[in-house]
Amino acid sequence: MKILNRKYLLTVGLLGFSIMVLGLGSSVSLASDFPEAGDFVRGSKAWSENCMRCHSMRSPSDLRDDQWVTTVFHMRVRAGLTGQETRDILTFLQASNAPIDNSAGDVEPVSKEKIAQLSGGKIYQRNCMACHGANGKGVLPGMRDFTDKTGRLTKTDAQLLNNIINGFQSPGSSMPMPPRGGNAQLSNDELAAILSYIRQEFSK
C-alpha cells in the first residue's frame, strides 16, 4: 500500500511538474489577432521546402482560407513545423488561393522604360522562386521548365503577362499558377519587369 502510494505520488508529481513547466513556456495570453499574420515571402519558401516532403504538393487553390487554418495546424503537428513557419505558410496559402480570373480582359502593355526602372530579378526571387526555382526549372515535381527551348517562353509577352496577372492552368498540370503569384500587392509594372527578367535569364 505504501509503495503504491509513493508510486502514485511520483506519477502525479511528475505529470503536474511537466504541465507546469510546459505552461510556463507557453504564451498564456491569446494573441488579439488570430490567426496572427505571417510573412508571405518567408511563407512561400517554407511552403515549397516542407509541404511536399510526405505527399504530392497540395495546390493553394484546393482549400478556402478557413480550411487552410485547420489543415496547416494539422500539418504543423505532423511535420514538426515551428509556430512561425505555420503562420508564414498560412499567410502564403491564404493569399495564393484566389481563383483564376480572366474577366478583367487583356492587360495594357508596359513600356520598356518603366520595366528598366524596376529590378525584376529581386522581385522574382522574393515572389516566384518558391515555385519556379532560382534556375527557372521549377521546384514542384512535374512542373514545366522555363529554360525549355520549346516551352512556355515561346508564348508572347502579352499572353504570358496576362496569365501571370490573372492566373493560369493548362490541361496537363495539377496546380494552377496563382494570380500575381499570390501576391496581390505586385503591380502590373512589377510583373512585367519580372517577365522581362525571366526572359533574359532563362531563355538564353
Binding site: L22, S26, S27, R53, C54, F73, R76, R78, T82, G83
Partner: peptide, 26 residues
C-alpha cells in the same frame, strides 16, 4: 493537441506511432 509554444505541441490520446515515416506520414 495543445500548442504549448512555437516549438512544442503536447499530444495526448491515441496517436499514430512516431517511429519511422511510413505509419505516421505515408
Amino acid at each position: 493537441d495543445w500548442f504549448v509554444n512555437d516549438y512544442m505541441t503536447l499530444v495526448g490520446g491515441k496517436f499514430l506511432s512516431p517511429v519511422g515515416q511510413f505509419r505516421q506520414n505515408l
